[in-house]
Structures are given as structure tokens and as C-alpha cells.
Amino acid sequence: MSEHPVTLVVNNRRYDLEVGGRPGDLQPTHTLSYTLRETLGLTGTKIGCDKGECGACTVLLEGEPVLSCLILTVECHGKKITTIEGLEDPQTGKLDPIQQSFIDSGAFQCGFCTPGMIMSVKALFAGNPSPTGQEIREALSGHYCRCMSHYHVLEAVAGSVPKAGGTDE
């Protein structure tokens, strides 16, 4: 078993987690969503279904959106992870334009799905600064929102597209 410590870089901050059985230790069964929330206190990542079916726990792993409830933390050694807490400017607290656009468009109701959606949009824009409406909907296709804020979310995303002549509201 002899697990060495697991190093994560979460929102540009390094964490060395001991693997073992003591309270607070990382255990092999811990999912990334569990570690983020319960060990690192980053509760912005929400758990909806805990089985990869709702998208609420989406974080970026090496820049790609993944479901943190289906990933074992021990398998993330040396990996760079970004969560919702990592989007705002750590010095000034200025929000990411996507976050600001969600506010401006009122793109949430209960808001439980919001952090996960924002992470997917963040990854979309990183790889594709001028996505089409279809690409935006596809990027969000794994996110469940029962309040049905979808239309305002699409407006918010269109409103924060990094390279666009205009939005298709």
C-alpha cells in the first residue's frame, strides 16, 4: 500500500496530503469532490447526485472539465485543479467575467448548479474563445438545473464570450 503523500495544486496553491487512516488523512476511497469540500474546505464545489449524472461537482483538472465525484483523489497526484473559488482574482477579488455575466443576466435561481456550470464555461472559453450557440449548449449539456435557469444561463454565457462581435440573445 505504501502510498506516498499526494500533492494537489488547487487554485494555484499546493497541498500535500498524507495518505493513511488517521482523522484528516486522505484515504483511497476519497473522491476529489470529498477532498475539496471536506479536507480543503472548498465547499463551492457542490455535490448533487455524487454519481456523475448532474454536473454540479464539475471542476477543471489540468484545464479540462471533469466530474470530481467520480475521481479518486489519490489518482490526482501532481495535478492542477481549478475550482469555483479559483476564478476570482485572489488579490483584488474581482470576479471572472463569466461570474459577472451570470450576475448581470440573473442566470440562477437556487444557485446550487451554478458553480459547476461556470467551470464548464470557463473550460469552453479557454479552448474556444468564440463558441457558437450550439457549442455553448453542448458544453453545458451535462449540467442539471431543475429550476430551469437555462435561458438566462445561455444569455450570460453569450454575454461573456471572450471574442465575439455580439451576443445572440
Binding site: G52, G55, L61, P65, V66, L67, S120, E138, S141, G142
Partner: peptide, 9 residues
């Protein structure tokens, strides 16, 4: 298959 996140994993 699945969603973009699933396909990334």
C-alpha cells in the same frame, strides 16, 4: 456518450 465531462474522463 454521456456528457463532455464524462468524455473527458
Amino acid at each position: 456518450v454521456g456528457s463532455p465531462q464524462i468524455r473527458n474522463m
